[in-house]
């Protein structure tokens, strides 16, 4: 007879909740009284990964700090779709200034709170990949090196989606954007360009750096909670699929996040003081093709005039990630 633990639930820890689990074992998102920091009526596209990610992060942070959160937002989709004048979708104190200065404003808010002795109120800065890895990077790097008490969250949808899908420093190689056309011998964004910000954050030796996706809610919530246990600068980088910019179906947002992780193309890990401490293991490994194919931004790689050679190069990136971030359980494969 196989020996099996009694405490087994049909969906394990993969689903949002389960009636068979205790409240502590369920995610914050399964709580009917969650804050809904980003409430209904926002103008994000159907199936928006960023709207989902923002609610996941802020609801968890609210639960972790007894509701004492202030948010500073960079310009971008998240800001535009949540606050068309005079409406707001935010149910928490929220501040927007400019595209590039979210980290600087957040540093200022944190300093002001400290000056007032209100250190129980915590500050979160958030932005898209454009406002984070490109335009707002100077102030962000400054916030990190000063170790200001701010959790900065980047919702990475891998291009400037709000202004019509232009390439950013976070756009992956071969992806089509409106400034990296799917034509010529090297279609889409160029290889060996762009940057992976979590590693740069780690180079600042800040207390906590982590990556996550909207596909694994339990992992994401655990990381937000953990981030709130630290003082000083923290950085959370969340992959959020964009149906508009990626050319994907609105109902495949979570499936694509999962595929990005399961293929090894997006590594999920955490680091403390510049050293990686853990990585999320791949459960059912898939080739990158399964992640790329449902996205029209990679359509030029497939079909009659496809580019299997480029798919192969992308696969090598995934394979390299698997090795670098230790994404496969030892002894689980091969």
């Amino acid at each position: 007879m196989t020996v099996t633990p009694l405490k087994f639930y049909q969906v394990g820890s993969f689903a949002v909740g389960n009636r068979l689990l205790t409240d502590e074992e369920r995610s914050e998102q399964s709580n009917p009284n969650r804050v809904n920091a980003l409430t209904s009526g926002h103008r994000a596209c159907q199936g928006c990964g960023e709207a989902l990610g923002a609610r996941y992060v802020l609801d968890t942070a609210m639960a972790a700090t007894d509701g004492k959160i202030m948010a500073v937002n960079a310009t971008g989709c998240l800001e535009v779709f949540s606050t068309p004048y005079p409406e707001t979708s935010w149910r928490i104190p929220w501040l927007h200034s400019l595209f590039g200065n979210a980290a600087a404003v957040a540093s200022g808010v944190a300093t002001a709170l400290k000056a007032q002795g209100k250190t129980d109120i915590r500050v979160i800065a958030q932005g898209g990949d454009g406002g984070t890895v490109d335009i707002g990077f100077g102030p962000l790097s400054g916030m990190w090196e000063r170790n200001d008490d701010v959790l900065y969250v980047c919702y990475d949808n891998e291009a400037y989606m709000n202004t019509g899908v232009q390439r950013s420093g976070a756009t992956p190689p071969a992806a089509r954007t409106n400034t990296s056309h799917a034509s010529g011998p090297e279609p889409g964004a160029h290889f060996n360009q762009g940057k992976f910000l979590p590693l740069i954050a780690m180079a600042h030796h800040i207390p906590y750096v982590a990556t996550a996706t909207v596909a694994d809610l339990h992992d994401l919530e655990a990381k937000v909670k953990k981030a709130m246990t630290f003082r000083g600068a923290r950085y959370l980088h969340i992959l959020v699929p964009c149906p508009l910019g990626w050319g994907s179906r609105s109902d495949e947002t979570i499936m694509l996040s999962r595929a990005a992780v399961e293929s090894g193309f997006f590594p999920v890990f955490e680091a403390e003081h510049g050293v990686m401490t853990s990585s999320k293991k791949i459960r059912r490994r898939i080739p990158v093709e399964e992640y790329l194919k449902p996205q029209k931004r990679y359509a030029h790689l497939f079909g009659a005039n496809g580019r299997p050679d480029i798919v192969e190069r992308l696969q090598r990136i995934a394979d390299h990630n698997i090795e670098q971030y230790d994404l496969v359980e030892k002894g689980a494969e091969e």
Binding site: Q29, A51, I254
Partner: peptide, 19 residues
């Protein structure tokens, strides 16, 4: 079977979880 997935994954909070 009440796994809360629909309630959790809606980007628009358009799923109501009843008592």
């Amino acid at each position: 079977f009440n796994c809360d997935n629909c309630f959790g994954v809606c980007p628009d909070n358009a799923v109501i979880k009843k008592p």
